[in-house]
């Protein structure tokens, strides 16, 4: 069963809709990657799922439950996590406190999860007492992902996790994402490094003008000459 299913979602920030009918379906074992030109509604799709903008048409079903226009404080306990593209750490708080904030919705003991996150990102264990604002860009991205994983999500949504990172870190982040997925967390991410991301995607979505243009596995999309020509820069 699909962990998340979008059916013809229409929405925007109050003016003209930015999403004009997006369909999407992701299994828990999937890594879904959304690509497309600027202004296609990639990030907007994630925000629509996360209740950060008004959905005026269609429906979003998460794990069998209708979550259309639900707010984050309801979504996070359900098992949905979101890593925004920018300002995604609490800069004045320590790394460990950042992780604790990710577990805010949990009332059970989350020390196991924290060990797991430290195991996944060993560098964070070293810097656990340091304010997140003092870390490098790549390390911040890890804090942000770690924070989002602390709520034990079924689906992790990432908005351009590689933005602003040096190529070495981009590969590292992508490897981590694949590892997280192997641990049983579904992934839905937006990426500018389209070719690189589609290479490990099990589901790929090409959006343009707020609508699906192509859907398939990552490999299929890369192989499709039309996708390659129009959206992957040749």
């Amino acid at each position: 069963m699909a962990v998340i299913e979008l059916k013809h979602v229409v929405g925007g920030y109050g003016g003209a809709p930015i999403l004009n009918g997006v369909d999407m379906s992701i299994e828990k074992s999937d890594i879904g990657v959304i690509v497309g030109p600027n202004g296609a509604g990639k990030s907007t799709t994630l925000k629509a799922i996360f209740g950060l903008l008004q959905v005026t048409g269609g429906s979003i079903v998460f794990d069998g439950e209708d979550i259309t226009n639900a707010q984050p404080d309801r979504l996070v306990p359900l098992g949905l996590s979101f890593v925004p593209q920018e300002k995604n750490v609490f800069t004045t708080m320590s790394v460990e406190e950042n992780l604790e904030m990710g577990a805010f919705v949990r009332r059970d003991d989350f020390s196991q999860t924290m060990q797991w996150v430290y195991h996944m990102f060993p560098v964070l264990a070293e810097k656990r007492r340091q304010p997140a604002g003092e870390l490098s860009g790549g390390q911040r991205q890890m804090v942000a992902m770690g924070r989002a994983l602390m709520s034990n999500p079924k689906l992790l949504m990432l908005d351009e996790p590689s933005a602003g990172l040096s190529p070495r870190y981009v590969i590292e982040i992508f490897e981590t994402i694949v590892n997280v997925n192997k641990e049983g967390v579904g992934i839905l991410m937006v990426e500018q490094n389209a070719r690189q991301a589609l290479a490990f995607a099990s589901r790929g979505f090409v959006l343009a003008n707020g609508q699906n243009r192509f859907t398939g596995t990552g490999a299929e999309l890369i192989a499709d000459p039309e996708v390659a020509r129009s959206f992957l820069g040749g």
Binding site: L52, P72, D73, F90, T91, M101, V105, S151
Partner: peptide
């Protein structure tokens, strides 16, 4: 305390606090 830290988190970055599921 959990709530005290949540307060600092919200003062630091209200949008992220909301996204983290903190009950603002």
């Amino acid at each position: 305390s959990r709530l005290g830290k949540a307060m600092r988190a919200m003062a630091d970055n209200p949008d992220l606090a909301q996204v983290s599921g903190i009950n603002t």
